[in-house]
C-alpha cells in the first residue's frame, strides 16, 4: 500500500543467497540475544527497564542492511536488535546491559540508550518520539554538507501521537531532507492498541506531509530490505524524506514489567505462525539457498556468540565510583566543536 507523492514502482535489488543467509543469521542472533536478556533480567544481572525485540527482527535486519556504513541511525528504546543488525558486537551490548565498563556506553546508558559512533549508531532514545527532531537535524547536516549520506529514524506507532513526530516530519518535508522515517508498528503503544490511539492509519498521517509513504509487511525481511532500498535511493537523490510503516508484532510484553492484560495468548500464537525467521528459512529452503544442516549450524553459532557475550559482560568490571563525574561535559580545549 502506498499514498502520498509519486512512489517508485520498481522493486529494490533482491538480496542474493549470501545476503539472505546473513539476514537469517542476524535475526537468529537477535532472537537468541533477547531470550538470554530475559534470563539475565530474572537472574538480576540486567536491571532497569528492559524492552525486548523478539518478533520484530525482520524490521531491524531488513532496514539496516540496506544502509551504507556512512548512513546514520537513531532509534527508540527497544534498540538491541537495531544495534546487533548494525554490527555492534553482542559482547559490548550485553556488557552495557550488565552496566559494565566494557559496554558500548561504559555502563552509563543501559538498555534504552545504546550508542556506537564508529558505526554511526547515534543512539537509542527513551522519550517516545524525542529522537525524531534529531533525525531531522542529521538530515539538515547532510544537506548543508552537500553529502549523500542518509539518516534512518526508527520509532514505534506509539510515537505518532507525539508532537515531535509531526514537527520532525514537517521540517524534513519543507527542507527536503534525506531522512527515511521507519515506523515499527507492533500494534500497541505499551498496552493501548494503535486503532484506539490514532485518528488515521500511520502511513496516511505521514503522507499528509507530502512525502512518499508506504505500508509494508514488517515480518518479511526481504520486503523490508527492498522497501528501504527504494526509500534510500529516493532520499539520496534529493527528493526529500520517505516514510515506511512496517507492520510487525512483539512476542513479549512492552517491558519485563508488563503483565500483558490487554491481549490474549491466542493472538500471540497467531502472529507466531507468521514468524519472520521461520518464513525466511522456509523460502530459502524452497529456493535452494539453505538446508537444515546449515540452519542448525547458524543456530549453534548464535548460541555460542550469545553465551560468549554473557561471559564477556560478566567478566567486565563495573565503572569505578571515581568516574561518577566523567563525561558530564566535553572538555573545552580552546577549540570549537
Amino acid at each position: 500500500m502506498s499514498v502520498g507523492q509519486a512512489i517508485p514502482t520498481t522493486v529494490g535489488e533482491p538480496p542474493d543467497g549470501d545476503l539472505q543467509q546473513q539476514f537469517l543469521y542476524e535475526m537468529l542472533l537477535i532472537r537468541r540475544f533477547e531470550e538470554k536478556c530475559a534470563e539475565m533480567y530474572t537472574r538480576g544481572k540486567i536491571r532497569g527497564f528492559l524492552h525486548l525485540y523478539s518478533g520484530e527482527e525482520a524490521c531491524a535486519v531488513g532496514a539496516i542492511n540496506a544502509l551504507r556504513a556512512d548512513d546514520k541511525i537513531v532509534t527508540h528504546y527497544r534498540d538491541h536488535g537495531h544495534a546487533l543488525a548494525r554490527g555492534i558486537e553482542p559482547n559490548r551490548i550485553m556488557a552495557e546491559l550488565f552496566a559494565r565498563t566494557g559496554g558500548t556506553n561504559e555502563g552509563r546508558g543501559g538498555s534504552m540508550h545504546i550508542f556506537d559512533v564508529d558505526r554511526n549508531f547515534l543512539g537509542g532514545y527513551a522519550i517516545v518520539a524525542g529522537h525524531m527532531p534529531i533525525a531531522t537535524g542529521l538530515g539538515l547536516a547532510a544537506n548543508l554538507s552537500h553529502e549523500d549520506w542518509a539518516t534512518l529514524c526508527i520509532f514505534g506507532d506509539g510515537g505518532v501521537g507525539e508532537g515531535e513526530f509531526h514537527e520532525a516530519l514537517n521540517l524534513a518535508a519543507i527542507w527536503k531532507l534525506p531522512v527515511v522515517w521507519f515506523c515499527e508498528n507492533n500494534g500497541y503503544g505499551m498496552g493501548v492498541p494503535f486503532d484506539d490511539s490514532l485518528a488515521n492509519d500511520v502511513y496516511k498521517i505521514a503522507a499528509a506531509y507530502q512525502m512518499p509513504s508506504v505500508r509494508i509487511d514488517g515480518m518479511d525481511a526481504l520486503e523490508v530490505y527492498s522497501a528501504t532500498q527504494l526509500a534510500l535511493a529516493h532520499v539520496r537523490e534529493g527528493h526529500g524524506p520517505y516514510f515506511i510503516e512496517a507492520l510487525t508484532y512483539r512476542y513479549r510484553g512492552h517491558s519485563m514489567a508488563d503483565p500483558e492484560l490487554y491481549r490474549t495468548k491466542a493472538e500471540i500464537e497467531e502472529y507466531r505462525k507468521r514468524d519472520a525467521i521461520q518464513r525466511l528459512k522456509r523460502s530459502m529452503i524452497a529456493d535452494g539457498l539453505l538446508d537444515e544442516t546449515t540452519y542448525q549450524a547458524l543456530v549453534a553459532r548464535v548460541d555460542a556468540e550469545v553465551d560468549e557475550a554473557v561471559a564477556y559482560a560478566d567478566a567486565s568490571p563495573e565503572p569505578g565510583l571515581h568516574t561518577l563525574y566523567d563525561h558530564i561535559t566535553k572538555e573545552y580545549e580552546g577549540e570549537s566543536g
Binding site: I134, G137, A141, L144
Partner: peptide
C-alpha cells in the same frame, strides 16, 4: 531537536 542533530553531525 534539529539543532541537536546537526550538532551531532559536526
Amino acid at each position: 531537536g534539529a539543532g541537536v542533530g546537526a550538532a551531532l553531525a559536526g
